[in-house]
Design a protein around this nucleic acid. Structure first.
Lengths: 340, 340
DNA sequence: TTTTAATGTGATATGGATTACAATAATTTT
DNA sequence: AAAATTATTGTAATCCATATCACATTAAAA
């Protein structure tokens, strides 16, 4: 029932707890513990299957070997997959993960940060919400390593791993234009954070470069917390009232999923009546008929980079900012073929 | 940088740490601390924004206010959604969640249990793998509350929250039969754990009750760790070589997703050439053309029950076993309409 | 031979909260 | 007025690992 403590080992080995601690923490050489004693302690620890009490160790050292993962929504396939990668990678370093979803709500995010803070996680991987920069800066200046993901604050120095949202959106839109679509709309979120802003900019610039005039009425913004049915209504209304609209770019995976549903409700033929491209891949996009062209994020790579950067910062904090922008992959499928 | 400790409050209030502890833990009355002192302490604690150090508290009390969540695969939408519900529910009680994925691998599961154990989580929610019963029993007899989910060990007493797999599979299969399908196959996993066994039994009994002979060659079992491409090959082979097969029941959501992909690769028309029903709902099933009939799990309810039972056991351990079997909901869609 | 240095290990304080027990002051009882 | 209660609060031990400093012993250097 009770755990084996360092004292138990010390008693059995006939040495002091200090010596045991040194040996088990690999400081035997440094602290000049004799090989004899060292081996004896190792052996006893092995026999008793000693596992250090992480609470006690954490209390003393201030390190909990735990990282906090704050995502927008763990139920979203992108973040769920990311969580899995992060879990696996962190495990390689002996770290566990405490997670939380913000629902894109700043108050909820602040709450999560606070809980994680007084649970003393060693470092954070955060998908920040709007206005979370102050809290993040506070943590940073308290010496806590933080790596942002999916988005960041342009005016605030920080480590981050993001994707090239601008280019992704640009490529997606340019592709639609190249296919001959003329009136290309975008369904995005009301968020004015950098990742959405970049996507919108990419969309706008691609239009411009294709000689198509940017038309404000073809930009539909939906709030994150609008539910499925509400979104569907809004999207349907947008599609119906945008006369001549022949293609849409959905700026997130869940908007894409809702978009497909809306288009289906309207009984429009994707590919024939309306071209579709979506940001972020998803099983649905691959399997839908017709399959949906998308801009795929390298989730595996994102997760690995996140954890690697965090571990580096935990072990050898450096002044240099690690800012990674990963390329996206435009996957062509029938949904964006004109007259397909 | 440093946190506010109980000592800081004690100093400011001019009392001992003991008194502060009593007051902040709501034991003021019980320990007969005067209202005056009590209020003063509360006020100071509020002003300093005191947050107890969970490590220290955990070390002393043995309670970490953390629960371990072990799922099969956090990237799977069912488990991801469940994780979110569990997170939200646990939060209501002030608990945080440490999670891990087993990949249906017993060794990995054992590793997770061990890590969670020496991290001293207070309780567990576990999707057990095969042969994990011994480890679970050990934890139970060490007094750790455990609630199993999705599956359990029939010969081992434990708390659990599962769904009525037998009836779900029965209803799904019976529905196919009622629609006039004659040669109904099932694609399931090689797992012989109870949830899969029940699904297979439900399938078999429904066939029998419909006067259809159970045909062993119409049962295709795939190992969990077979990758997407491998599964697709196997499923295609199965579909092609089962002469006269006119409907399939996929026993898990990921098998269903792969099944749809396989059928699509074969260029068969779901609904027309082959009826399809799947266990577990998914965005894809709702949106696919034709939409896929499925047996939907009440994820919200599952998560709530899990956390509620766990909290009850954490606070007032009882001898009674909480064993919840939730009903499933057969959602009819075009994929299972004969000649549809 | 004496001093200095190296070697190997232990005693103790620390981190922060909880709790068994002790202690003091205030009140009531006899 | 002395004794017995009761009301309030404090002291110190505890959970366990770790870091600092100290100490004893032996070997090397002066």
């Amino acid at each position: 029932m009770k755990g084996i403590s360092i004292k138990d080992i010390a008693k059995q080995a006939g040495v002091s707890p200090t010596t045991v601690s040194f040996v088990l923490n690999g400081k035997a050489k440094e602290k000049r513990i004799s090989d004899q004693v060292s081996k004896k302690i190792q052996k006893i620890a092995g026999k008793l299957k000693y596992k250090p009490n992480q609470l006690a160790r954490g209390l003393r050292t201030g390190k909990t070997k735990t990282i906090g993962l704050i995502v927008e929504d763990i139920a979203n396939s992108f973040f769920a997959t990311l969580a899995k990668v992060v879990e696996d990678e962190a495990d390689k370093f002996g770290y566990k993960v405490l997670y939380g979803s913000t629902e894109d709500n700043t108050e909820k995010a602040k709450g999560l940060l606070e809980v994680l803070k007084y649970r003393q996680v060693d470092g954070y991987i955060i998908t920040p919400t709007k206005n979370l920069d102050k809290e993040i800066e506070q943590l940073q200046s308290a010496g806590k390593p933080i790596v942002l993901v999916d988005r960041y604050f342009p005016q605030m120095p920080s480590h981050y791993v993001v994707v090239d949202n601008y280019k992704g959106a640009y490529d997606a839109t340019a592709h639609l234009a190249a296919q001959g679509f003329q009136k290309i709309g975008i369904v995005t979120t009301t968020s004015d954070q950098v990742q959405m802003k970049d996507r919108l900019d990419g969309y706008a610039d691609a239009l411009k470069d294709a000689g198509i005039t940017y038309n404000k009425t073809l930009v539909k913004k939906l709030p994150f917390d609008l539910d499925k049915d509400g979104s569907n209504e809004e999207i349907k209304k947008f599609l119906k009232t945008s006369k001549g609209l022949d293609a849409v770019f959905f700026a997130t995976n869940y908007l894409g999923i809702r978009g497909i549903e809306s288009i289906r409700n309207l009984e429009w033929q994707i590919g024939k009546q309306i071209g579709v491209v979506c940001f972020d891949d998803h099983d649905i996009f691959r399997l839908y008929t017709p399959a949906i062209t998308c801009v795929a994020q390298p989730i595996q790579e994102i997760g690995q980079q996140l954890v690697n950067i965090l571990m580096k910062e935990l072990n050898h904090p450096s002044a240099a900012l690690q800012q990674v922008v990963l390329p996206l992959n435009l996957i062509l499928r029938p949904s964006s073929q004109h007259n397909g």
